[in-house]
Amino acid sequence: MATRSTSKRVSRTKARRHTRPREPSWVHLSDEELLQKRFCDLRLSLRHTEIDQHIHRIRRDLIRRGIRFAPHVWLSEEWFSPDGVPGIAIAFYMAHPRLMRLERKMMDEVEGGNANWLTRIMRHEFAHALDNAYRLRRRKGWRETFGDPDRRYPNVYRPRPASKDFVLHLGHWYAQSHPTEDFAETFAVWMQPKARWRRDYQGWPALRKLEYVDKLMSELSGTLPHVMNRSLIEPISENQTTLAEHYRRKRARYEFDSPGVYDLRLKRVFGKHHKGRRRMRASTFVRQSRPEMERWLMRRSRLYPYLVHHVLRTVIQRCRDLDLVLDTSKRQAKRALLGVLERILIDILRRDRERYTL
């Protein structure tokens, strides 16, 4: 009898150990009701989530390479790794599928919403945390390789898509925006198998940066971090903002400072309508070309879908307001329009980054 009783207790203990936490009540709310919830009331946790497993996998990858560093993680409104803190803030919606669905509805996309994208983001943010933990940017070799980390983000961010001085990882040529981002993107590529990045970047000046990171990580092998504080910056558990206010502010970040600021560029692509001359309306041309433009901007440049949709909607409206028409071949107009759209998108991303880093 005693033996059977003990066996039952062990069995129940194992069952409790493998039982997933109960679903929170807000899971069944409508989108409108959920948007009225405050972040702190959601009581979110990373335990038993897919991203928790993903974090452990990346930590194991670092350990296999001899790097004795495991950044602490917490949930916040957005993805980021704060300066001076060897940790990573993870976007709140990654804690539950219901919140990911809401994010997709509000922003047209979930940043890190698939395994491949999540891996890219996590490797990038791990790089920032590693930089903070070992104070890598203070090293002379780091500065000679990537530049001055104290430089402010440029007022005008003009990426060079054809440049081979930088690796390609997150998209929209992010490594070109700042020395710290250049390092983070290079480290993220370095975490791939060595044979792969050597092959992919053979003949590129960027290969020198990858080789520097490879050497630097060998030097760090087996050493403990210099900075080990566990500060939590803007944790979701203390955030009393409602989800509705969060998304209102997030969408506002991508608004144009002035709808007419790019009118001159559009006038260089399209002509002015004249009575008696039959020409396709520029707004019609952009609307018809929109699916192709979106595919190019989101797949090749990996730009944020909500931002792409928003910019195209605004450009269509400006073409209509200015009464512009197509006065060149469609092929020429498409090429020129892509250049304008890319310029607008990069300007908005640069402005958003400036606000975030000030």
Rank of each mutant, 00 (worst) to 15 (best):
R143W: 12
R143L: 10
E144V: 09
T145I: 10
T145R: 07
F146H: 08
F146N: 11
G147Y: 12
D150F: 09
R152M: 03
Y153V: 02
Y153L: 09
N155R: 12
N155I: 03
P159W: 11
R160T: 14
R160V: 13
R160Y: 07
P161C: 07
P161Y: 12
F166S: 09
F166G: 08
V167N: 08
L168M: 12
G171K: 02
H172M: 10
W173P: 04
S177K: 03
P179V: 06
T180I: 14
T180W: 00
E181F: 04
E181L: 07
E181I: 01
F183Y: 12
F183M: 09
A184R: 10
E185P: 06
E185N: 10
T186G: 04
F187V: 13
F187M: 06
A188M: 07
W190S: 02
W190E: 03
Q192Y: 11
Q192P: 02
P193A: 04
R196V: 13
W197S: 04
W197H: 06
D200C: 02
D200Q: 13
D200T: 09
Y201N: 04
Y201I: 03
P205T: 05
A206G: 02
L207Y: 03
R208G: 00
L210S: 04
E211N: 09
Y212I: 00
D214L: 02
D214R: 02
D214H: 15
L216A: 15
M217G: 06
M217A: 06
S218L: 12
L220Q: 05
S221W: 09
S221V: 03
T223Q: 14
L224Q: 15
L224P: 01
H226A: 13
H226M: 14
H226T: 15
H226W: 08
V227F: 00
M228S: 13
N229V: 12
N229K: 11
S231C: 07
I233P: 01
I233Q: 11
E234S: 14
P235S: 10
N239C: 06
N239Y: 02
Q240E: 14
L243Y: 00
L243R: 05
L243N: 00
E245Q: 13
Y247E: 01
R249S: 08
R249K: 12
K250G: 00
R251E: 07
R251N: 05
R251A: 03
R253K: 04
D257Q: 09
D257R: 13
S258I: 00
G260C: 06
G260H: 14
Y262W: 15
L264D: 12
L264A: 15
L264S: 15
R265M: 14
L266A: 01
L266V: 10
V269T: 08
V269P: 10
F270S: 00
G271E: 05
K272F: 02
H273D: 10
K275Q: 08
G276R: 12
R278F: 05
R279V: 00
R281A: 11
S283Y: 12
T284A: 14
